[in-house]
């Protein structure tokens, strides 16, 4: 989880420790369409997971995303 959060902070170019598990990631001003692309690559590269958009739309917090990835990781 810590590693995932730190990857997320890196992606949004935020300082270490800014993001919490309960944060709603879509509310970050840094979360734009390009961050989405970076996010997709990060998740694919780190966890070998691709999140379909219908599933992704249901994920609200950083923790939700982490849990989803854990459930799909091979």
């Amino acid at each position: 989880m810590e590693r995932f959060i730190s990857k997320f902070e890196e992606l949004l170019e935020l300082d270490d420790g800014t993001i919490k598990k309960t944060d709603v990631f879509r509310e970050f001003s840094e979360w734009d369409s390009l961050a989405v692309l970076g996010f997709s690559v990060m998740v694919n590269e780190e966890y070998n997971v691709i999140i379909p958009k219908v599933e992704f739309d249901k994920l609200i917090t950083i923790g939700d995303v982490y849990n989803y990835i854990q459930s799909k990781k091979v």
Binding site: S33, V36, I50, I51, K53
Partner: peptide, 12 residues
Amino acid sequence: MDGMEVFNFTMR
């Protein structure tokens, strides 16, 4: 264009 879906498709 749904950029994320296209991107995911391409990676897949």
